[in-house]
Design a protein around this nucleic acid. Sequence first.
DNA 1: TGTACATCAGTGAACGCGCGTTCACTGATGTAC
DNA 2: TGTACATCAGTGAACGCGCGTTCACTGATGTAC
Lengths: 228, 228
Amino acid sequence: MAPQEQDQGQGRQEQGAPRRRNPRGQGQVLRGQLIDAAAKLLATLDQPETLTLRQVAREVGVAPASIYGHFPDLSALVQHVLRLRYEELARLMEQAAQANPDPLGDVVARCAAYARWGVDQPGHYRTLFGGRMPTDLLTGSAHGAGEELFGALVASLAAVTDPDGTRSTPEGQWQAGILLWTALHGLVSLYNAHGTMSWPPLDDLLTDLIGLHTGRPAADIAALLAAN
Amino acid sequence: MAPQEQDQGQGRQEQGAPRRRNPRGQGQVLRGQLIDAAAKLLATLDQPETLTLRQVAREVGVAPASIYGHFPDLSALVQHVLRLRYEELARLMEQAAQANPDPLGDVVARCAAYARWGVDQPGHYRTLFGGRMPTDLLTGSAHGAGEELFGALVASLAAVTDPDGTRSTPEGQWQAGILLWTALHGLVSLYNAHGTMSWPPLDDLLTDLIGLHTGRPAADIAALLAAN
DNA sequence: TGTACATCAGTGAACGCGCGTTCACTGATGTAC
DNA sequence: TGTACATCAGTGAACGCGCGTTCACTGATGTAC
């Protein structure tokens, strides 16, 4: 997926070792490095929304103007990174779900994958979900990963709470999905920002959260969570 | 947006009427105007975290340097505003609860006050809860409004789910409170950012959310919500 | 085989912008003698 | 009563900074003849 370069001082460029220009025909290499650098900075920065074009250039060890050969501006680069992260998250959730044939296991796996990804990569989570909606980022894509991700979660939840599909309307399932998603989002957001406040372990909160939204016993969910 | 539109009299100040210096002994007037202007801008701005000192000065119609007579820097001014907003929110929740003697009504009133305040003032909500935790903002205060607000919510919820106080531990009640708060936070955050995505009415979501966390029938909650 | 030219992958200096912060200052108003 | 001085509530110009963006350019490498 992402173009991986050989590890020749991959991190920040130090003075004394000036970057070597790529040979002809290898212009796409810098593009990959820009994407990697932006991703790293977005994940790392305290406030990822303050990322600048010059920071990315510095991280790669390249002149600021060099970015314009590959992206029209910083926001295009960031959007590209976010798209990749979004797809990564959607893929992780899908893979986690596929390893759990049981409907409850499916929901638990998706929720756990979402929350753990968000907690592991606070900067990326904040950039993706902290401000404008992901749909804003995915404008123009035929299949926004956001809708896929969310649609699958709605279906997964409905398969637990209404296995026969006779007890609820599509609107009701949609609303239940929104509530589950917003609960997960709030949990991840505040968990990432909780500072010095004492917080229970993430899995304990996830157990109760999923228990509330599925109506299943906490013990069942805790067991599934531990297995994921 | 023609740049000519921005005259020297920018902001709330009209260009024909330059601000008159306050008379001696009335130096605190500007302080109040700075607070008001910062509050207005924080509530208004698309991204409140980008507020600058010069924007506040422009809004009041004063030289940027004039702010230093009243606050050491912008963050001190913002912290002051946030403290006021925080106290306002805590007061609103307390007042709403006091109008509802019933325990379930108490929870519903608090949650509704929280969510409606957050949805009515997206900029303030985002500034308060969007990044670092409120406890960071309230460092140094003997009684942080945050802990009061949250502690009252925990107690209010426990009064519904465990009226006798025999079924749960303090830790369990704390955890249930965190889950309720994070759910509210996620709901408000994503509601404020939902853009073009179709969303159910806020009260419908609140009804189900409170229903999940209290275990009470949706009809009861909807009735209480409508009355608040 | 040499050589002229084209292309590629960037560079480096410069531009104007808004920003936070500093500093000496300015006028109006009060107060002491 | 007049007048010298002190204080208050700011002002206005300047500083250096990092930023996004532009532009002419530079070397190395390929290609045509």
